[in-house]
Amino acid sequence: MELAFLVTLLAAGIRSGTAILFATIGEIFAERSGVLNLGIEGMMLMGAVSAYGVAFATGNPWLGLGVAMAVGGLMALLHGMVTISLRADQVVSGLALTFLGSGLSAVLGAPLVEVRNAPRLPVFPIPVLADLPILGPIFFNHNVIVYLGLVMAPLAWWYIHRTRPGMELRAIGEYPAAADVLGINVNRQRYAYVVFGGVMAGLGGAALSLAITPLWIEDMTAGQGWIAVGLVIFASWDPLRAALGSYLFGAIRRLPLDSQNLPFFLAYPQLGYFMNMLPYLFVILLMLISARSEMRRRIGAPAALGQPYVREERGV
Protein backbone atom coordinates (compact mmCIF):
# COMPACT_ATOMS: atom_id res chain seq x y z
CA MET A 1 0.00 0.00 0.00
CA GLU A 2 2.57 2.55 1.09
CA LEU A 3 5.03 1.51 -1.59
CA ALA A 4 2.35 1.75 -4.24
CA PHE A 5 1.52 5.20 -3.00
CA LEU A 6 5.16 6.25 -3.14
CA VAL A 7 5.60 4.90 -6.65
CA THR A 8 2.49 6.69 -7.83
CA LEU A 9 3.69 9.86 -6.17
CA LEU A 10 7.17 9.70 -7.68
CA ALA A 11 5.87 8.92 -11.15
CA ALA A 12 3.41 11.78 -10.85
CA GLY A 13 6.18 14.00 -9.50
CA ILE A 14 8.36 13.38 -12.51
CA ARG A 15 5.46 14.04 -14.82
CA SER A 16 4.34 17.09 -12.96
CA GLY A 17 7.85 18.52 -12.54
CA THR A 18 8.62 18.34 -16.24
CA ALA A 19 7.13 21.71 -17.16
CA ILE A 20 9.08 23.52 -14.50
CA LEU A 21 12.21 21.61 -15.43
CA PHE A 22 12.16 22.99 -18.96
CA ALA A 23 11.60 26.50 -17.68
CA THR A 24 14.36 26.14 -15.09
CA ILE A 25 16.90 24.83 -17.59
CA GLY A 26 16.04 27.66 -19.96
CA GLU A 27 16.50 30.21 -17.21
CA ILE A 28 19.83 28.64 -16.23
CA PHE A 29 21.12 29.34 -19.72
CA ALA A 30 19.82 32.90 -19.75
CA GLU A 31 21.26 33.64 -16.33
CA ARG A 32 24.54 31.95 -17.08
CA SER A 33 24.89 34.35 -19.98
CA GLY A 34 24.25 37.24 -17.62
CA VAL A 35 20.59 38.03 -18.20
CA LEU A 36 17.99 37.56 -15.49
CA ASN A 37 14.56 36.95 -16.98
CA LEU A 38 11.73 37.15 -14.47
CA GLY A 39 9.21 36.82 -17.26
CA ILE A 40 9.11 33.01 -17.19
CA GLU A 41 5.63 32.94 -15.70
CA GLY A 42 4.33 35.07 -18.57
CA MET A 43 6.18 33.09 -21.21
CA MET A 44 4.94 29.78 -19.79
CA LEU A 45 1.37 31.02 -19.81
CA MET A 46 1.68 32.22 -23.36
CA GLY A 47 3.26 28.90 -24.30
CA ALA A 48 0.47 27.00 -22.62
CA VAL A 49 -2.33 28.96 -24.25
CA SER A 50 -0.84 29.00 -27.72
CA ALA A 51 -0.01 25.29 -27.60
CA TYR A 52 -3.53 24.46 -26.50
CA GLY A 53 -5.14 26.79 -29.00
CA VAL A 54 -3.08 25.60 -31.94
CA ALA A 55 -3.54 21.94 -31.01
CA PHE A 56 -7.27 22.46 -30.81
CA ALA A 57 -7.49 24.42 -34.05
CA THR A 58 -5.27 22.15 -36.14
CA GLY A 59 -5.71 18.88 -34.34
CA ASN A 60 -1.96 18.53 -34.18
CA PRO A 61 -0.41 18.77 -30.72
CA TRP A 62 3.11 18.77 -32.15
CA LEU A 63 2.34 21.91 -34.10
CA GLY A 64 1.03 23.38 -30.85
CA LEU A 65 4.30 22.51 -29.17
CA GLY A 66 6.28 24.22 -31.92
CA VAL A 67 4.18 27.36 -31.83
CA ALA A 68 4.47 27.53 -28.04
CA MET A 69 8.24 27.41 -28.30
CA ALA A 70 8.25 30.13 -30.95
CA VAL A 71 5.98 32.33 -28.86
CA GLY A 72 8.16 31.89 -25.80
CA GLY A 73 11.22 32.72 -27.86
CA LEU A 74 9.62 35.85 -29.28
CA MET A 75 8.66 37.13 -25.85
CA ALA A 76 12.16 36.51 -24.60
CA LEU A 77 13.48 38.37 -27.62
CA LEU A 78 11.48 41.36 -26.45
CA HIS A 79 13.10 41.07 -23.04
CA GLY A 80 16.46 40.79 -24.74
CA MET A 81 15.92 43.94 -26.75
CA VAL A 82 14.88 45.92 -23.70
CA THR A 83 17.62 44.65 -21.40
CA ILE A 84 20.55 43.86 -23.70
CA SER A 85 20.30 46.59 -26.30
CA LEU A 86 18.50 49.27 -24.31
CA ARG A 87 20.07 48.17 -21.03
CA ALA A 88 16.89 48.59 -19.03
CA ASP A 89 16.57 47.15 -15.57
CA GLN A 90 16.25 43.38 -15.94
CA VAL A 91 14.01 42.95 -12.93
CA VAL A 92 11.42 45.44 -14.10
CA SER A 93 11.49 44.27 -17.69
CA GLY A 94 10.95 40.69 -16.55
CA LEU A 95 8.04 41.75 -14.38
CA ALA A 96 6.54 43.56 -17.35
CA LEU A 97 6.90 40.42 -19.43
CA THR A 98 5.02 38.42 -16.83
CA PHE A 99 2.21 40.96 -16.72
CA LEU A 100 2.05 41.02 -20.48
CA GLY A 101 2.04 37.24 -20.76
CA SER A 102 -0.54 36.57 -18.10
CA GLY A 103 -2.85 39.30 -19.42
CA LEU A 104 -2.49 38.41 -23.06
CA SER A 105 -2.89 34.69 -22.38
CA ALA A 106 -6.09 35.38 -20.45
CA VAL A 107 -7.44 37.41 -23.37
CA LEU A 108 -6.41 34.87 -25.99
CA GLY A 109 -7.45 31.91 -23.89
CA ALA A 110 -10.92 33.15 -22.94
CA PRO A 111 -12.65 31.10 -25.67
CA LEU A 112 -10.45 28.08 -24.91
CA VAL A 113 -11.60 27.71 -21.31
CA GLU A 114 -14.67 25.83 -22.54
CA VAL A 115 -12.60 23.50 -24.70
CA ARG A 116 -11.95 20.20 -22.97
CA ASN A 117 -10.93 17.91 -25.77
CA ALA A 118 -7.96 19.42 -27.56
CA PRO A 119 -5.55 16.71 -28.74
CA ARG A 120 -2.79 15.85 -26.30
CA LEU A 121 0.76 14.67 -26.66
CA PRO A 122 0.86 10.89 -26.57
CA VAL A 123 1.83 8.69 -23.67
CA PHE A 124 4.49 6.22 -24.70
CA PRO A 125 5.47 3.36 -22.38
CA ILE A 126 8.98 2.30 -23.27
CA PRO A 127 8.87 -1.39 -24.23
CA VAL A 128 10.35 -3.81 -21.69
CA LEU A 129 11.59 -1.07 -19.37
CA ALA A 130 8.06 0.05 -18.56
CA ASP A 131 7.36 -3.40 -17.13
CA LEU A 132 10.15 -3.25 -14.59
CA PRO A 133 8.85 -3.25 -11.07
CA ILE A 134 8.99 0.16 -9.33
CA LEU A 135 11.42 1.75 -11.81
CA GLY A 136 9.10 1.02 -14.71
CA PRO A 137 6.16 3.12 -13.60
CA ILE A 138 8.40 5.85 -12.15
CA PHE A 139 10.61 6.44 -15.17
CA PHE A 140 9.44 4.55 -18.24
CA ASN A 141 5.71 4.88 -18.54
CA HIS A 142 5.22 8.51 -19.40
CA ASN A 143 4.16 11.10 -21.86
CA VAL A 144 6.79 11.62 -24.55
CA ILE A 145 7.50 15.11 -23.29
CA VAL A 146 8.54 13.71 -19.92
CA TYR A 147 11.31 11.71 -21.59
CA LEU A 148 12.44 14.88 -23.30
CA GLY A 149 12.89 16.45 -19.87
CA LEU A 150 14.76 13.41 -18.57
CA VAL A 151 17.20 13.67 -21.48
CA MET A 152 17.41 17.44 -21.50
CA ALA A 153 18.91 17.88 -18.05
CA PRO A 154 22.10 15.82 -18.55
CA LEU A 155 22.41 17.17 -22.08
CA ALA A 156 22.31 20.74 -20.78
CA TRP A 157 24.91 19.89 -18.16
CA TRP A 158 27.17 18.39 -20.80
CA TYR A 159 26.77 21.42 -23.03
CA ILE A 160 27.67 23.88 -20.29
CA HIS A 161 30.66 22.01 -18.92
CA ARG A 162 32.04 20.00 -21.78
CA THR A 163 31.68 21.99 -24.99
CA ARG A 164 33.37 25.07 -26.40
CA PRO A 165 30.16 27.13 -26.65
CA GLY A 166 29.39 26.11 -23.07
CA MET A 167 32.79 27.38 -22.01
CA GLU A 168 32.04 30.66 -23.73
CA LEU A 169 28.64 30.80 -22.07
CA ARG A 170 30.24 30.51 -18.64
CA ALA A 171 32.70 33.24 -19.54
CA ILE A 172 30.20 35.81 -20.82
CA GLY A 173 28.16 35.54 -17.66
CA GLU A 174 31.16 35.89 -15.44
CA TYR A 175 33.38 38.39 -17.19
CA PRO A 176 31.92 39.56 -20.49
CA ALA A 177 34.82 41.91 -21.22
CA ALA A 178 37.24 38.98 -21.16
CA ALA A 179 35.14 37.11 -23.70
CA ASP A 180 34.74 40.21 -25.81
CA VAL A 181 38.46 40.84 -26.23
CA LEU A 182 38.81 37.31 -27.51
CA GLY A 183 36.34 37.98 -30.27
CA ILE A 184 33.23 36.52 -28.69
CA ASN A 185 30.20 38.61 -29.52
CA VAL A 186 28.82 38.91 -26.02
CA ASN A 187 25.52 40.55 -26.81
CA ARG A 188 24.75 38.24 -29.71
CA GLN A 189 25.30 35.22 -27.48
CA ARG A 190 23.21 36.76 -24.75
CA TYR A 191 20.39 37.25 -27.20
CA ALA A 192 20.70 33.63 -28.27
CA TYR A 193 20.56 32.27 -24.72
CA VAL A 194 17.77 34.58 -23.61
CA VAL A 195 15.72 33.48 -26.59
CA PHE A 196 16.59 29.87 -25.83
CA GLY A 197 15.36 30.45 -22.29
CA GLY A 198 12.09 31.73 -23.70
CA VAL A 199 11.78 28.76 -26.04
CA MET A 200 12.21 26.44 -23.07
CA ALA A 201 9.65 28.36 -21.01
CA GLY A 202 7.23 28.09 -23.94
CA LEU A 203 7.97 24.38 -24.09
CA GLY A 204 7.27 24.14 -20.37
CA GLY A 205 3.95 25.89 -20.84
CA ALA A 206 3.06 23.56 -23.68
CA ALA A 207 3.98 20.57 -21.54
CA LEU A 208 1.44 21.79 -19.00
CA SER A 209 -1.45 22.36 -21.36
CA LEU A 210 -0.80 19.45 -23.72
CA ALA A 211 0.39 16.73 -21.40
CA ILE A 212 0.48 17.39 -17.68
CA THR A 213 -2.75 19.16 -16.82
CA PRO A 214 -3.89 18.95 -19.89
CA LEU A 215 -6.26 21.86 -20.25
CA TRP A 216 -6.23 25.60 -20.57
CA ILE A 217 -7.25 27.52 -17.46
CA GLU A 218 -6.46 31.16 -16.84
CA ASP A 219 -3.28 31.51 -14.78
CA MET A 220 -2.84 27.76 -14.89
CA THR A 221 0.87 27.96 -14.08
CA ALA A 222 0.00 29.14 -10.56
CA GLY A 223 3.43 30.58 -9.96
CA GLN A 224 5.47 27.79 -11.53
CA GLY A 225 7.39 30.35 -13.57
CA TRP A 226 8.42 32.08 -10.39
CA ILE A 227 9.27 28.81 -8.76
CA ALA A 228 11.57 28.11 -11.69
CA VAL A 229 13.45 31.30 -10.86
CA GLY A 230 13.83 30.06 -7.31
CA LEU A 231 14.93 26.61 -8.44
CA VAL A 232 17.70 28.15 -10.54
CA ILE A 233 19.20 29.58 -7.38
CA PHE A 234 18.73 26.33 -5.51
CA ALA A 235 20.36 24.50 -8.41
CA SER A 236 23.40 26.80 -8.34
CA TRP A 237 22.91 27.22 -12.09
CA ASP A 238 23.47 23.48 -12.61
CA PRO A 239 20.93 21.60 -14.80
CA LEU A 240 21.30 18.32 -12.92
CA ARG A 241 20.46 19.90 -9.60
CA ALA A 242 17.66 21.69 -11.41
CA ALA A 243 16.23 18.32 -12.40
CA LEU A 244 16.39 17.14 -8.81
CA GLY A 245 14.63 20.28 -7.60
CA SER A 246 12.00 20.18 -10.34
CA TYR A 247 11.01 16.58 -9.76
CA LEU A 248 10.93 17.07 -6.00
CA PHE A 249 8.74 20.08 -6.56
CA GLY A 250 6.54 18.03 -8.85
CA ALA A 251 6.10 15.36 -6.21
CA ILE A 252 5.23 17.88 -3.54
CA ARG A 253 2.79 19.56 -5.86
CA ARG A 254 1.11 16.24 -6.46
CA LEU A 255 0.97 15.34 -2.80
CA PRO A 256 -2.44 16.92 -2.06
CA LEU A 257 -3.96 15.33 -5.18
CA ASP A 258 -2.58 11.85 -4.68
CA SER A 259 -3.11 11.74 -0.96
CA GLN A 260 -6.65 13.03 -0.85
CA ASN A 261 -8.04 9.53 -0.98
CA LEU A 262 -5.97 8.33 1.93
CA PRO A 263 -8.28 7.76 4.90
CA PHE A 264 -6.51 10.33 7.06
CA PHE A 265 -7.19 13.14 4.64
CA LEU A 266 -10.75 12.10 3.98
CA ALA A 267 -11.36 12.86 7.63
CA TYR A 268 -9.87 16.37 7.37
CA PRO A 269 -10.73 17.82 3.97
CA GLN A 270 -9.65 21.30 5.09
CA LEU A 271 -6.06 20.09 5.13
CA GLY A 272 -6.05 20.45 1.36
CA TYR A 273 -5.50 24.19 1.61
CA PHE A 274 -2.39 23.64 3.67
CA MET A 275 -1.16 20.82 1.48
CA ASN A 276 -1.46 23.18 -1.45
CA MET A 277 0.81 25.65 0.33
CA LEU A 278 3.58 23.07 0.50
CA PRO A 279 5.14 23.65 -2.93
CA TYR A 280 5.52 27.35 -2.21
CA LEU A 281 6.89 26.77 1.27
CA PHE A 282 9.13 24.11 -0.24
CA VAL A 283 10.68 26.72 -2.51
CA ILE A 284 11.41 28.97 0.46
CA LEU A 285 12.97 26.01 2.20
CA LEU A 286 15.12 25.32 -0.87
CA MET A 287 16.27 28.94 -0.86
CA LEU A 288 17.24 28.56 2.78
CA ILE A 289 19.22 25.43 2.01
CA SER A 290 20.99 27.02 -0.91
CA ALA A 291 21.81 30.15 1.10
CA ARG A 292 23.70 27.95 3.51
CA SER A 293 25.42 25.78 0.95
CA GLU A 294 26.28 28.82 -1.15
CA MET A 295 28.32 30.13 1.72
CA ARG A 296 29.95 26.80 2.29
CA ARG A 297 30.86 26.03 -1.28
CA ARG A 298 31.53 29.62 -2.24
CA ILE A 299 29.50 29.27 -5.38
CA GLY A 300 27.51 32.27 -6.35
CA ALA A 301 25.53 33.61 -9.20
CA PRO A 302 27.26 34.35 -12.49
CA ALA A 303 29.22 37.45 -11.58
CA ALA A 304 27.85 39.60 -14.36
CA LEU A 305 24.22 38.56 -13.81
CA GLY A 306 21.95 41.53 -14.21
CA GLN A 307 24.52 43.83 -15.72
CA PRO A 308 24.26 44.93 -19.31
CA TYR A 309 27.51 44.73 -21.23
CA VAL A 310 28.81 47.81 -22.96
CA ARG A 311 32.16 47.85 -24.59
CA GLU A 312 32.78 51.41 -25.48
CA GLU A 313 32.66 52.85 -22.02
CA ARG A 314 35.51 54.90 -20.84
CA GLY A 315 38.03 52.78 -18.99
CA VAL A 316 39.88 53.90 -15.88
Binding site: L97, L100, S102, G103, A106, V107, A110
Partner: peptide
Protein backbone atom coordinates in the same frame (compact mmCIF):
# COMPACT_ATOMS: atom_id res chain seq x y z
CA UNK B 1 -15.07 44.92 -21.37
CA UNK B 2 -14.76 41.28 -22.35
CA UNK B 3 -12.59 39.32 -22.10
CA UNK B 4 -11.37 40.01 -18.61
CA UNK B 5 -7.62 39.91 -19.20
CA UNK B 6 -7.51 43.17 -21.14
CA UNK B 7 -6.61 45.32 -18.14
CA UNK B 8 -3.75 43.04 -17.19
CA UNK B 9 -2.50 42.91 -20.74
CA UNK B 10 -2.57 46.68 -21.08
CA UNK B 11 -0.70 46.98 -17.79
CA UNK B 12 2.02 44.77 -19.16
CA UNK B 13 2.21 46.81 -22.34
CA UNK B 14 2.41 50.09 -20.45
CA UNK B 15 5.14 48.85 -18.15
CA UNK B 16 7.12 47.45 -21.05
CA UNK B 17 6.83 50.58 -23.11
CA UNK B 18 7.86 52.72 -20.19
CA UNK B 19 10.79 50.57 -19.19
CA UNK B 20 12.14 50.24 -22.70
CA UNK B 21 10.90 53.47 -24.19
CA UNK B 22 12.31 55.74 -21.59
CA UNK B 23 15.74 54.38 -22.33
CA UNK B 24 15.13 54.44 -26.04
CA UNK B 25 14.54 58.16 -25.85
CA UNK B 26 17.95 58.57 -24.30
CA UNK B 27 19.54 57.49 -27.53
Amino acid sequence: IQPAGIAKMLQGVVLFVVVGGELLLQY
